[in-house]
Amino acid sequence: MDQSVVKKEKNNKVIKNIVIYIALIVLSIFVLVPFIWMLSASVKSSNQVFTVPIQWIPKEFHFENFINIWKKVPLTMFFKNTIFLSVVITLIQLLTSSFAAYGFSKAQFKGRDVLFLAYIGTIAVPWQVYMIPQFIMMKGLGLTDNLWALILMQAFNCFGVFLMRQYYMSIPDELCESARIDGLSEWGIYWKIILPLTKPAIASLTIITFVNTWNDYMGPFIYLNSTENKTIQLGLRMFVSQFDAEYSLIMAASVVSIIPVAVVFLSMQKYFVEGIATSGMKG
């Protein structure tokens, strides 16, 4: 009798799991439909994109779309600009915020907590509130239509300091204390003890900053006017307005713009998710 109860429970569990799987698969398809449509349209000819009924698998494949888009607009240049921005911003952000996070969590000095409060306070101020004076300032520096304006604006983000500090706080102070007694300097402690311990935090910040910079739209939209300075997002937008009937080419360019960030995300997904959970929850 005992056995039959166990069996019944097991059966119930299997049925429950099947129901969950079906629900998850149906939802996944709903979430993925835009991407499937994008991929399918990218290898059609433009007059085949909107057909009734919808063809999910094209009758004939036009892979040459992926070659033609590079001739229509300077995609290579857009990619170069975007990679430059993403890499430089991520590097500066990583270095300066991990320094500052050490200062705010492990070093002692007067006014430390007040200063940190100023940092935290600005997280609550949307960028859109102060983007105008910032723009005027950049204009004064002669940096409009210049990639460096975006670097200066985004590389000293307080979010990075905040995220890194969350990790640093979880490292016991005794570790630093004993290193100090051993005669290690503050920079020595940072470099030899704290930094190696916070590799996951660095990975999190790297991928979050990289993805955000890659996908940023409003900043480049306001600052970058000339074609040779445009990022991939602006370039794609330009493509859409110039060739608005070339549906399949637009979709091919969209696919190409997503690929790099998708690869980075999929290979470092764990750190991305952890970063969100940390910065989100412990704040």
Binding site: L27, V31, F35, Q233, I250, M251, S257, A262, Q269
Partner: peptide, 15 residues
């Protein structure tokens, strides 16, 4: 489920 969040906004809006 997380994927749409990281894909570039312009591509997504256009599709």
């Amino acid at each position: 489920f997380f994927f749409p969040y990281i894909t570039s906004l312009v591509a997504v809006a256009v599709v």
